[in-house]
């Protein structure tokens, strides 16, 4: 079995005629916190969906923990999507029961204690919860697992800076340290301090994959500064041309 937790070779994904990923080659080892960084539409969500089995690649090859994506890889991947995915009639405890039934690495007691520390009442129906509380429940579901790979799709998008810190702290204090965390975001400055590696995606291609220390050492600047330099949009000239 390979040492890599994530392996992608010539990964190509298109929606109809529009390509979302164009020949992605990527290797990520275990025990890393990796930032999947890129502007909107760069292919971050598509790559994460391919890794968790929600999409199939158009061409190319993809493996998680040395296996093609399927029931095994789904059992070792903990995925936080960028939207709510549960039925409103359920209670948080119903979801915990479901996760306990399907994922051997789900820790029920940990989920309950996370709920207590996050101020979530697990016996309440989800439809009675605010959007923020539902997001906390979803975060609890994902982080109460001792997964090999955590795929977090924009976990801090659309929340205020205080909430971002709170979410990142929850992730960092609860993830399985032998596993890898892949965080997709375009809010670099908020996540930079926790990252081991950064992957820059631009128009479906990997522009850069390096450790954060290497970026700082070789480029002499922070990941955020490098990101701004690479992805800086040119201002529009007077004639309307870019």
């Amino acid at each position: 079995m390979s040492d890599c937790l994530i392996e992608c070779r010539g990964l190509y994904k298109s929606y109809g005629l529009r390509p979302a990923l164009r020949g992605v080659d990527l290797e990520v080892g275990p025990g890393r916190i990796v930032g999947l960084l890129g502007p909107n539409g760069s292919g971050k969500t598509t790559l994460i969906k391919l890794l968790c089995g929600l999409l199939q690649p158009t061409t190319g090859w993809l493996a998680v923990d040395g296996r093609a994506v399927g029931p095994y890889t789904k059992s070792v991947v903990s995925y936080l999507p960028d939207r709510m995915y549960f039925a409103d009639w359920m209670k948080a405890t119903d979801l915990f029961d479901l996760f306990r039934d399907f994922y051997q690495d789900f820790e029920y007691e940990k989920a309950m204690s996370m709920c207590r520390s996050l101020g979530v009442e697990p016996g309440d129906r989800l439809k009675a919860m605010s959007k923020g509380t539902k997001e906390k429940v979803q975060l609890v579901l994902v982080m109460a697992r001792s997964a090999k790979l955590y795929l977090l799709d924009e976990p801090i998008a659309g929340v205020d800076p205080a909430a971002r810190d709170f979410i990142l702290r929850t992730i960092l204090t609860n993830y399985n340290e032998e596993g890898t965390v892949l965080i997709s975001t375009h809010l670099i400055s908020d996540v930079e301090k926790v990252l081991d590696e950064a992957v820059f995606l631009k128009e479906g291609k990997i522009m850069l994959h390096a450790t954060v220390d290497d970026i700082r050492e070789k480029e002499g600047k922070s990941v955020d500064a490098l990101f701004r330099e690479i992805f800086r949009a040119e201002p529009m000239w007077e004639g309307g041309e870019l």
């Binding site: 089995g53 029931p71 789904k74 059992s75 995925y79 709510m84 995915y85 549960f86």
Partner: peptide
């Protein structure tokens, strides 16, 4: 439609089942 093709599909299709 909601359970497998809607938002709940994000949960159902990531369960370790066929």
């Amino acid at each position: 439609s909601k359970g497998l093709l809607g938002n709940e599909g994000y949960l159902m299709h990531t369960l370790p089942v066929r």
